[in-house]
Amino acid sequence: MNETSALVIIVAAIFTNNILLANFLGMCSFIACSNQISTAIGLGTAVTFVMTMTTMINYAIYHTILKEGAVLVPYDLTFLTFIVFIAVIAAFVQFVEMFIERFSPKLYFALGIFLPLITVNCAILGASLFMVIRNYNFAQSVGFGFGGGIGWAVAIILMAGLRQKMRYSDVPKPFKGVAIAMIVTGVLAMAFMGFAGMVTIQ
């Protein structure tokens, strides 16, 4: 068990261990939805919210039911981790969608279209899996979920800005589209490496 404070983990998850630029999670929607800054902001917000909440829920389930010697169930159910986590994420996203559709139609129109996309965003599942692998306690998990979400949002918003500018630049033909996007992401990742050493988490 490590003793890093949750605040440090938030900062690390945004800058030094950015979930997208250092751990490559959530690339699919990152490439597909980074053409417009407004879209990127919407998706980033939705991811941050869902990631924070699902790490919390998954933490609770993992430590009360799945883990060996857990409180509620006397068996070692860790082999069910994947399927339980993905079910929790899918159910939570569905629930949030219904909830905001009912109570805040305005928010629903802003975020609604992004929510189904999030179920298959590997960053969400990845955050929960990292939480288990790195043995985070509750505060650390929430910090990691929140920081990871913010980090992902920052990365996709930066990328959207760059891609909007790039529309007017003359890219060699074979590199047009995804290829140049990957290389730009590489440069972005390099820039974020400049933060390394600021704080470290494993």
């Binding site: 630029l21 250092a22 992401t185």
Partner: peptide
């Protein structure tokens, strides 16, 4: 490291 991965994939796609 991470940046190399992105750049390598970019070149492979190209």
């Amino acid at each position: 490291l991470a940046p190399g991965a992105f750049i390598a994939l970019g070149f492979v796609i190209a």
